[in-house]
């Protein structure tokens, strides 16, 4: 696929500089039955140009984290404590108007199933133009907008003529590409991609992930990928966070986590993912169900399903500790996991 990115602004990036810092974020949903502790003490940092992945089962809070970053949570959500700093500015203290300025211009989002959010009665190009109008009011002439959109489209592997088409003339994959073009429209520094390829076929999924990875590298953007499928984001992320029941249980460089998962949950998650390469391994199913977050388990939230749980896990909550080289784990037994792993194999 021929693409031209040279005209889109390429940012000078400093890979050691943090772009987004999530610091001890706690967020609850208030419902009639009580408070759901959806995000509990989650901290991670996204550096400039970095791709971070968040994985976990349904209801583990990964989507809530994404929505928190954009402050798009439903009205019954309540930020209890913590900070979300974007370029040093705490997003939680911004007024709704100031937040709106950041959204899309600095932080854009590609939702799960966003490809179905196109308005069917407008041309795709006109819908992107609307975004440009909102954020660059008067700064771009009609022709400049057109030129910019054509560049965006070619950067995601679509032809410029497709700007004049209606959404129903696009296939699912093309619509999702157009969504990505829309997300890129204001050259954001950060893109949050929540299950960006979940509804797509494998081949299209592969193409889109590769496209995103290339664009991210070329434009110097940061991306947060969110998925329930650890295999999908293995190839596209630099760092990986594993979430369980509202908590970040393991965080570190993707390659480290894949090679040496130290949280039993991350370990089991990896072991339960079928693969087509390598010898056909025995798969270890993750037994049990995720807990009800209205009354989360005491101590380590994973202890009811953990094969290694001890009494300590039931009473004391393990902190997220650094165990070397940016690898952080919240488990009392992380040192023993390799041994226990062997025991499981036998």
């Amino acid at each position: 696929m021929t693409t031209s990115l040279e005209n889109l602004e390429t940012r000078q990036i400093d890979r050691t500089k943090p772009l987004l810092e999530v610091d001890r974020l706690v967020m609850h949903y208030k419902i009639k039955a009580g408070e759901v502790s959806a995000i509990e003490d989650v901290s991670f940092t996204v550096h400039q140009g970095e791709a971070v992945g968040l994985v976990g089962e349904s209801g583990c809070g990964k989507t809530s984290v994404a929505l928190s970053l954009l402050r798009l949570l439903p009205s019954n959500a309540e930020y209890v404590s913590g900070e979300i700093r974007f370029n040093g500015e705490d997003l939680l203290y911004l007024s709704p108007d100031e937040m709106r300025q950041h959204r899309w211009k600095d932080i854009a989002m590609v939702f799960q199933g966003a490809m179905n959010s196109w308005n069917p009665v407008y041309r795709v190009g006109d819908q992107i133009r609307e975004t440009l109008d909102t954020h660059y009011r008067g700064a771009m002439s009609y022709d400049q907008q057109r030129e910019h959109m054509e560049r965006l489209f070619s950067s995601v592997g679509l032809t410029p003529e497709m700007l004049d088409r209606y959404p129903h003339e696009f296939s699912g994959g093309m619509r999702q590409r157009a969504v990505i073009a829309m997300a890129l429209a204001c050259s954001p520094e950060l893109i949050i991609a929540d299950e960006p390829t979940t509804a797509l076929d494998v081949i299209v999924q592969d193409q889109i992930l590769k496209e995103l990875k290339r664009i991210q590298a070329e434009l110097g953007m940061s991306i947060i990928y969110i998925s329930h499928d650890i295999a999908v984001i293995a190839e596209v992320t630099d760092s990986l966070g594993v979430m369980y029941a509202g908590k970040l249980v393991e965080y570190g460089p993707t390659s480290t986590i894949f090679a040496r998962p130290r949280h039993p949950y991350a370990y089991l998650l990896l072991r339960s993912t079928p693969s087509i390469t390598g010898p056909r391994r025995e798969l270890a199913p993750l037994e049990g169900e995720p807990p009800n977050l209205l009354s989360p388990p005491t101590g380590c939230r994973f202890h009811p399903r953990c094969p290694f749980a001890t009494d300590k896990c039931v009473t004391d909550e393990p902190p997220l500790e650094e165990i070397g080289d940016g690898h952080r784990v919240a488990c009392w037994h992380h040192e023993q996991v390799p041994e226990l792993e062997e025991a499981l194999h036998r």
């Binding site: 039955a33 009580g34 759901v36 349904s58 299950e195 009800n292 977050l293």
Partner: peptide
């Protein structure tokens, strides 16, 4: 084709409708 019911699940998690025991 393969949308996992994440929203639905979150909905259940939020409403605490499940009855595991």
């Amino acid at each position: 084709m393969t949308t996992p019911p994440i929203e639905a699940d979150d909905e259940h998690a939020r409403s605490g409708q499940r009855d595991p025991d």
